[in-house]
Write a protein that binds this DNA or RNA. Structure first.
Lengths: 311, 311
DNA sequence: TATTCCTTGACAATACTTAGACAGCGGTTT
DNA sequence: AAACCGCTGTCTAAGTATTGTCAAGGAATA
């Protein structure tokens, strides 16, 4: 015959083990707050029931999370269970937990790059993208990591090798993201590239991925593309907008001519977005009618729907 | 029955945690503006009510967005809620566009399933996972879609073929997620399975993926697993916890025996979580010392870190 | 006999309290 | 501009409350 849950049968030692408390705490709680009142053996030793165990277990959980034992002491078992459940939902809103915060991913990525561990870097980036979602990943991990790497590189903490390895892996991951969003015929078309003499393509890839995640159909053409090629391609795919990334600070006469040529070669309704470090730095020179300079990925994202409507 | 929302019961540090403020700020706000007037314990310590928490939470959100606390201090709860709503509408610019909201993905998924288009279903699910991030995907797309599919199936709108196709694709996508999070040696281990005579494994897979995204190293064993197998495996991989999914409403004597056997076969420190429709429905029968019933994925997620700490 | 458990009283570590001070920020006035 | 000012978050110091931990001496248990 199975015993009733109120049958006293567990000695202190076992009770402590099962509830995660110590015998000392059990006695202190009983002495001070009459949290439970265990039965006694013939010789006066405590014997706890299943119900006591349950109660004590819940109390431990709640006190660990910040409730005060003094206040919880007189609460009924049913109420304790209710509170625990409420706490669970309430705290679900609260924290994203260490290990899956954007910063954690960034630093893990930079460490991997520093160790020249391409496989680990890729794994970290993929995990970040899948955990945070592409928009969050691009804004808070990819952007931040690239910035940090560039910074460390210019400070001499990272070598060219590190930078190349990181570039290769980022290209792979961003390419993967682009592929996931490849889709037939939906969404407006965006052409992404880097103008002549601009070899850094990561910014462009970042923008391409961001646009893809926003539902655009992105044609990514890579770095250092002659203006006529851009024009032809834009016409061919029926682009609703063209986005260029400019990183090198040499915003030279050639570049300005290129931009003018590009703008006048594109149809009226086709938007032209220029982003990247150099674009922000020389915003006044680059800005022109029909040319929008974007300072950040977030800015880029908000500029996109506008272009779509203009068609 | 002490459950009026105005019952004071939360000490300062809990209140700080729940509202995202710090104890310092709580006291400063009270001292300067009488934002709230918490009750006091016998010894003079603050005790906040649920209503206080609600109010403080709203105040934090609004001050973060630039409102001044001095101005908001005397505003009623109802007015605060109204202001927050208005703000939300105003900032709707930042709202995800149509096409990348959870509902859009769910309905696209169900349409694909209805058309028996496995490739499209898989593409939609992958895009959803990558756009929303795995936690969001599991909570708002996978969970919802499966529920809808099950519902349509029981209504006769979807055939067994549809249901099997969907199961196959979901299994593939969830498996992909599990693989992305595969990682060597980090994190506590979780064993996920379905007990004997429980054939529906999608719930278990969902849980497995959620745990993986939280940093657990998950060993997924699939459906209909004999208890001794579970025990051996748990010991072999050194599991910190075991999670089971129970869907069929037949919580029969066999199942109860199985659970008892499982619980007593597991070491003390190893947590045991039971989830799924049947578990929630028969929560009282299933609950036992050392066995925790979880009602939802969100609940499951919050239960996990606890198990980790208990080790 | 060796170990575990009992009670009581004390102590130490946290956590919380108040009152006050200070620094950064945005806006205003000189 | 420069100086000023109110608002707000943060910190300190000194005292109180709460709670975990321990010790001593005796009793029960195996």
């Amino acid at each position: 015959m199975p015993h009733a849950p109120s049958t006293p049968r567990h000695p202190v030692r076992l009770t402590a083990l099962r509830t995660g408390l110590t015998p000392h705490i059990l006695r202190a709680w009983e002495r001070r707050y009459q949290v439970v009142t265990p039965a006694r053996s013939g010789g006066g030793q405590r014997l706890y029931s299943d119900l006591d165990l349950e109660r004590l277990h819940l109390l431990r959980r709640l006190t660990e999370r910040g409730h005060s034992i003094g206040r919880l002491a007189k609460t009924s078992l049913a109420d304790l269970e209710r509170i625990v459940r409420e706490e669970d939902v309430a705290s679900a809103i609260a924290e994203p937990a260490v290990g899956s915060r954007p910063e954690d991913f960034s630093s893990a990525a930079i460490n991997a790059a520093r160790r020249l561990d391409a496989a680990e870097l890729q794994a970290v980036l993929e995990r970040a993208a899948v955990t945070l979602g592409v928009p969050g990943f691009l804004d808070e991990v990819a952007g931040a990591s690239l910035k940090k790497i560039g910074q460390d590189w210019s400070e001499g903490t990272l070598s060219v090798a590190h930078e190349h390895l990181a570039t290769a892996v980022f290209r792979r991951v961003l390419g993967w993201i682009l592929r996931v969003y490849e889709v037939n015929g939906a969404g407006p078309r965006l052409l992404v590239a880097t103008p002549p003499r601009q070899a850094h393509e990561l910014g462009a890839l970042l923008a391409a991925a961001a646009a893809a995640a926003e539902g655009w159909e992105v044609t990514y053409l890579g770095a250092d593309l002659p203006i006529p090629e851009i024009l032809t391609s834009a016409r061919q795919v029926g682009a609703a907008a063209v986005a260029l990334s400019i990183v090198y600070p040499s915003v030279d006469a050639g570049l300005m001519t290129d931009l003018q040529q590009l703008r006048s070669g594109l149809e009226r309704g086709v938007g032209l977005l220029i982003g990247g470090a150099a674009a922000s730095a020389e915003r006044e020179r680059v800005t022109a009618p029909g040319v929008e300079v974007v300072d950040s990925l977030a800015h880029f994202r908000t500029a996109l729907p506008r272009l779509q409507e203009q068609r």
